[in-house]
């Protein structure tokens, strides 16, 4: 199960900055939304992940979260989703810390927690978006880049 955390529109300076970098890079405009993703390997029901999101991972004042299972990813107004995650074997320090905190908070420990960054684009130009992510927000030496049409 994935817990995806998105900053509320009025607080989301980081996504605004990425929009500007994209526009400078490609000469194109796109609405962009950045998200933090925690992929939690655990055989449990939705309540388990919801509680972890609420009590460990998200800040209700400035953020929102959603749970993403095997369903297709949806985000109205956005057409392309890019996920940048660590390649197998690269130490995921934040993932390890989250795993430890979950058990210290009294929940059953998950098998593994992997973190990724998500980028939503309103523009439907896969090639330009992949180039942009590769050149600005990912390092193919340590990152996997997955692109989905949504």
């Amino acid at each position: 199960m994935e817990i995806e955390i998105i900053t509320l529109e009025r607080f989301d300076v980081e996504s605004e900055n990425i929009e500007k970098v994209f526009s400078d890079f490609s000469g194109l405009n796109s609405k962009i939304k950045l998200s933090r993703i925690y992929e939690i390997s655990k055989d449990a029901n939705k309540d388990y992940f919801k509680k972890i999101a609420e009590e460990v991972l998200y800040d209700p004042v400035v953020e929102n979260f959603k749970l993403i299972g095997s369903d297709k990813r949806v985000f109205p107004g956005y057409k392309i989703f890019v996920k940048v995650s660590f390649k197998k074997g690269v130490t995921d320090v934040v993932g390890e810390s989250v795993k430890k905190i979950i058990s210290e908070m009294g929940y059953e420990s998950p098998k593994e927690v992997k973190t990724s960054k998500g980028f939503y684009f309103s523009l439907n130009d896969k090639t330009e978006i992949i180039n942009f992510i590769k050149e600005n927000y990912a390092n193919e030496l340590i990152h996997n880049i997955i692109v989905e049409e949504i």
């Binding site: 050149e135 600005n136 927000y137 990912a138 390092n139």
Partner: peptide, 18 residues
């Protein structure tokens, strides 16, 4: 903020600085 013809497999200055 400058366009370079970066060699394959190398990171852009923006990527490096960030």
């Amino acid at each position: 903020d400058k366009k370079y013809d970066i060699g394959k497999g190398f990171l852009t200055p923006h990527n490096i600085i960030s």
